[in-house]
Design a protein around this nucleic acid. Structure first.
Lengths: 237, 237
DNA sequence: TTTACTTGGTGTTACTTTTACCCGATGTTT
DNA sequence: AAACATCGGGTAAAAGTAACACCAAGTAAA
């Protein structure tokens, strides 16, 4: 057995990059580590995978423990397995990202994380372990995905204005988009539902609210068309 | 220790989907298992990751053991970790795919695999473990990647005709492409080198050979342009 | 040597999509 | 009522994509 045993002296974990959008910036939810190693440092929420737990289930559990949310968008991204990435032993970690609506929950004050807090993704530069690398991979994957599938709506409240939607995509794609062209494109897909409600209490002409209509989207796809928002080839100078 | 120990009763492996192209079909290199479980069944080449071995290194090792090749295109795709995916214990596996030129090697006759053989990807329906699922994920990822980056050339010999290149992309994208438009598009990128050599011994007008020119490609990218071969929206009826 | 056969290789046109661009409308605040 | 701020829409020019047909160059067979 001895030989084989050494293969079983390793553990795996999941780390979950939880993205949110506050209307201006793309945010990521980080926790402050309460124990060694990297005590006091900010890190991605994550945990070891239980022996009888599927990977996806572990990622969902981490998310639920921190936010109380279930059934939100979750996607596996990449596995990080450098020999020395964890100081205490061989731990490979499977990175996931999830997309949540920031308003849907308050960060659990008394969970396994002493402190949890939203950070603007661009302002995060230093994290425990190799988490900065994990964050970058998930950020990139999100960007890819956002161009091809309507995952953006997972980050928005059920009712949003077209300007907010555009702001979101500008964050996700890291580029400016031209207002009229963006509206034309998104409306031409006919996957949004125009709501009766309009903005209130703003010091200017109030905007109409829209909602994402999953049924219409499915129909759009069934017609062989595809969701496709991309950065313009030539930017406006 | 007992509690923590149970987290270390697991192992990880890599599985490598090795793709090749024979001019007509997209192929995958499979091995026939010599030991239980799934003895005699065809499977993806893979192995447990050594305790002090990085994940990528393990994938490279598996490839080298089977083919003798080093330094070929290799990409991590996804990790499979269902609790019962391996009958002998908890083993999660990290799936990779690699792209090789079939002519570059003979399948090693005396490696850890008793038998190894190329199969047309479409004809593979039944594999050991969850390998069919892994194959599908890698196939899909390859298709995605082939549209956005010039990975196709990894599957072709250094000299190829435009028709062969088109055949390859038709396989990868699983669609027919229009000859003149395909040539126009690929040539307009100016990333191919037109060689002096032309076909010999064919019973028709001989075609010119081309080679992929990495330098020109880098320059193309540096200009802010991007490789982009995609399936047409409306197929020719 | 002529003819048939097979694949190689190219240019133009119609159409669709994308880009770039501006101003009146509608509300609030002072 | 005037100033302000965002909403929301159409059009023209440019680029890109799709569709299409024929001659060229070689071999093989009659």
């Amino acid at each position: 057995m001895g030989e084989v045993d050494s293969f079983f002296k390793s553990a795996f974990s999941v780390d979950n990059v939880i993205f949110g959008f506050d209307g201006g910036d793309l945010k990521v939810l980080l926790i402050q580590r309460g124990a060694a190693p990297f005590q006091g440092k900010w890190a991605l929420p994550g945990d070891l995978v239980y022996p009888n737990e599927d990977l996806d289930a572990a990622a969902e559990r981490v998310l639920a423990q921190l936010t109380g949310l279930r059934g939100v968008y979750l996607e596996q991204v990449k596995t990080f397995g450098a020999v020395n990435r964890h100081p205490l032993g061989r731990v490979i970690t499977v990175a996931y990202f999830s997309l949540v609506k920031i308003a849907d929950f308050k960060v659990a004050p008394a969970s396994f994380a002493q402190t949890a807090q939203w950070f603007s993704v661009e302002k995060v530069h230093d994290l425990a372990f190799d988490h900065i690398e994990i964050l970058a991979a998930c950020r990139y994957q999100l960007q890819l995905k956002a161009k091809m599938e309507p995952v953006g709506f997972e980050l928005l409240p059920p009712k949003f204005t077209l300007t907010k939607l555009q702001n979101l995509y500008e964050c996700l794609l890291q580029t400016k988009l031209e207002k009229r062209n963006f509206r034309k494109k998104i409306l031409s897909m006919d996957i949004l539902q125009e709501l009766e409600e309009i903005q209130e209490g703003v010091a200017h002409r109030p905007a109409r609210y829209y909602g994402f209509d999953r049924e219409r989207y499915d129909q759009y796809i069934a017609e062989g068309l595809s969701f496709d928002i991309r950065e313009p080839k030539r930017q406006t100078a």
